[in-house]
Simulated scan of single mutants.
Amino acid sequence: MTSATTSNNKRQRRSREAWGEVLTRFAASGLEIEAFCAHEGLSVSSFRRWRSLLADDVSRGVELPPPGAPQTGFVDAGLLGAGGRLELRLDLGAGVILHLSRG
């Protein structure tokens, strides 16, 4: 097996935003799902699953950033509060709150 064949068999993991971009391309393509997925090298079942997940997000009012927008919200907690106490509280929505403390 050649390295090119090996690399073609690897599954690519896409972020939520990347799937949003895929769905935008699909909407503009005018192709049927099967043809679009074959052209993009996607699994039809993965495509349908993500289309459903993102449609659920839209129906709940969750907005995806526009395609190509920089990702925001990353905090390197290793640099914050060095040598002192750090408390971080994140509201993840749907009643889920993540509370981290250090020090």
Rank of each mutant, 00 (worst) to 15 (best):
A18P: 04
G68L: 08
S59L: 12
C37P: 00
V58E: 15
G103I: 00
G61A: 00
S29H: 08
L90H: 09
G73L: 09
R102M: 02
H99T: 10
G30D: 10
P67Y: 03
L86T: 10
S101A: 06
R48N: 15
G83V: 12
L64G: 02
L98F: 07
S52Q: 15
S101G: 02
E21H: 00
F36M: 10
L90N: 06
L88Y: 00
R51I: 02
I97D: 09
T24C: 11
A28T: 11
W50P: 02
A28M: 13
F36S: 10
P70S: 07
G81P: 00
L54P: 15
R25L: 15
S29I: 12
D56L: 02
V22L: 00
A69R: 07
L79I: 02
G95E: 09
G103W: 01
L23P: 12
L90F: 06
V44K: 14
G84Y: 08
A35E: 12
E34D: 12
I33Q: 14
K10Q: 07
S7Q: 05
G95P: 03
G41A: 01
A28R: 14
F74L: 12
M1P: 04
A28D: 13
L53A: 13
P65C: 08
G73F: 01
K10N: 06
S46K: 03
G84I: 05
F26T: 07
A38H: 11
R89W: 04
P66Y: 01
V22R: 00
F26K: 11
E40H: 05
A18K: 14
R25V: 04
S29C: 12
T72V: 11
F26I: 00
T24K: 14
Q71P: 00
A27Q: 15
A77D: 06
V44F: 03
G93Y: 09
C37Q: 03
G81N: 09
P65G: 06
Q12T: 10
L31G: 03
A28Q: 14
G81S: 14
A82R: 14
A94V: 08
G41P: 03
F47P: 02
T5P: 04
G95F: 01
R48F: 03
L54H: 07
T6Y: 02
A35T: 11
W50Q: 15
L86W: 00
P66N: 09
F36L: 08
V44P: 02
A82P: 00
L64D: 05
V22P: 00
L98Y: 09
R16S: 08
D57P: 06
F74M: 04
A38F: 06
T6F: 03
S3L: 09
W19F: 04
A94H: 08
R102G: 01
R51N: 15
E40M: 09
S43D: 09
L31S: 12
G103K: 03
G84Q: 15
E34N: 13
L88I: 11
P70V: 04
D76V: 01
D57W: 07
S15W: 01
R25S: 13
G84H: 07
T72I: 11
R16T: 10
R85K: 14
N9P: 01
L92R: 12
W19Q: 08
R11T: 08
T5E: 14
V62D: 04
A28V: 07
A4V: 14
S59P: 05
L79K: 14
G103F: 05
Q71K: 11
S7G: 02
A38T: 12
G81D: 05
E32Q: 11
